[in-house]
Design a protein around this nucleic acid. Structure first.
Lengths: 289, 289
DNA sequence: AACATGATAAACATTCGTTATTATTATACT
DNA sequence: AGTATAATAATAACGAATGTTTATCATGTT
């Protein structure tokens, strides 16, 4: 049972000769002759009539010919798919992202990638860290963005530059002109906390520095926070990534002790990544972990 | 490249486990594992993700999965066709026939055959001896009816009983009551000669017996001859086969030296005949040549 | 007679599929 | 929590099966 045998028979019929088919297919005459015999033996049917001036189908062969051709044709299509995948002429790319990456960071990269590989279909699955982790484990996505360090099971790449946490002030805030925002001063003003799923890096920053700000609001909505800060309801801390092209009258200040949200890419195995995904990684400013 | 490998991968995905797939397919776990690896190596792609709780498709694998399934499915259909051909649940039967066989002899046999094998498609190609010979040589028909002896290239079977040549008389003919018609008497009455293509057996009968009848008409039309004889325009000789259920007021007499038209079946090779055709031969009253 | 066709036998090469084993991880049970 | 057990897949080595070739034969066509 083998497609090469089908092809041998098909070509022999189309050439009207086993010898010619052998030339076309790059076998010897003997090889093609035997392939067809093997089919006939295996199926207990006589498929072709032989003569000294060539070969042609028997009635039984005729009945099966189209189906054999169909199978070979489907195989040809499969081979084409494979070739396309190998040179990224086709492919599916499933990426797990969280909001800020999807909104502020990826679009630019996707644009460049799409330009070079227009036939790759990209699916962004938007979720929080926990969901993205699950998706990677389950194979729902090829890779995902996570906060590093991530689950030991994953291979990870660190995105550069890391995402600085910035203090957000209204434009009329007393410290608006300071060089860097002193950590301790965070306790002195009403604070609006970004809290999104298990994304607790800001709370941890407080713990590590033993700071206890006056937390007036908690929300998961970046833009709500910026709006609230603009309106003088308090100050906040947001990852720099979120702050690109902000439509709000607010000021972002570095902390005196800089703090980073380390964003990375995680996957089960970089080696097993589809070609399209490997290619995509080339467009990211990452460094090996 | 092999369908079994596709099936190994498909079943592994459907079972979610290489081990289970191996059980289902009757391979060892090791075998299935290697088959999939061989596909991946051959295509330079990673098709599945392995884990300790089973396997699932990568994006690339996902892209190819349906096409692999399609191919396996087409193969299944082909196998079904083959099985059907082998037990005559399906098939094509192309028979070369000449008029009298098609009209007077085959229908009865075809009816019994069709009854037993209703799914075999029968094509009758009507022609004269020369055409039928060509069709057999070209493989246009599986076998054909010919006058024996036939071309040396053919394998032949003789139909029994042979087709007696009968003298046809009008009902008021002087010799209507004789036991057998004396050969010499043929010269004494106007004669209507059946001459159809190269079908010259009656002329040859005359030559062999050195008889020179008064040939008034020649025609290839059996029924015209019967009609002419009925109307007293002469006498004739026709093969007995044509005379079954004649709608004419005529009398058929055996010759005093009986003469036969030996009808037979000819084919390139009895061994290479499609199953359906071999089966059909069983319905014919033939004897080996 | 020369050429072209397909079949066959024997030798060689490759692939297939197994057994036995290793490695890893999930699960069950103290 | 730690340990034993079971389940998963990968790997190496090997023999069997299959695939393919070379060389040759047999037969018919030109």
């Amino acid at each position: 049972m083998s497609l090469q045998k089908y092809q041998a028979l098909i070509t022999s019929i189309e050439c009207g000769s086993i010898t010619k088919a052998a030339e076309v297919l790059g076998y010897t005459q003997s090889g093609v002759s035997r392939m067809i015999q093997e089919l006939e033996k295996e199926w207990n049917l006589s498929l072709i009539e032989r003569s000294k001036s060539g070969v042609f189908l028997t009635s039984d062969g005729f009945k099966l010919f189209d189906q054999m051709k169909r199978i070979c044709n489907e195989q040809l299509i499969l081979s084409q798919y494979i070739d396309d995948l190998n040179d990224c002429q086709s492919g599916l790319l499933r990426i797990g992202v969280f909001s800020s990456v999807a909104t502020h960071w990826l679009p630019n990269i996707m644009k460049r990638y799409k330009n070079d590989f227009p036939n790759i279909q990209i699916e962004l699955l938007l979720g929080d860290y926990t969901e993205i982790e699950e998706w990677i484990l389950e194979g729902r996505v090829d890779f995902g963005f996570l906060r590093l360090p991530a689950n030991q099971k994953f291979e990870t790449l660190s995105i550069e530059p890391n995402d600085r946490l910035m203090v957000i002030l209204p434009q009329n805030h007393p410290l608006v002109d300071c060089e860097k925002f002193p950590m301790q001063k965070l306790e002195e003003y009403p604070f609006i906390l970004l809290e999104k799923g298990v994304n607790a890096e800001i709370s941890r920053l407080f713990e590590q520095n033993k700071i206890h700000p006056q937390i007036n609001f908690k929300t998961w909505d970046d833009y709500a926070i910026m709006s609230m800060v603009e309106n003088g309801l308090g100050i906040s801390i947001l990852p720099e990534l979120i702050l690109s092209r902000i439509p709000y009258q607010i000021v972002a200040k570095e902390l005196d002790t800089p703090y980073y949200r380390n964003i990375g890419i995680a996957m089960r195995s970089q080696r097993n990544l589809p070609k399209a995904a490997k290619q995509f990684l080339e467009y990211l400013p990452y460094r090996k972990e």
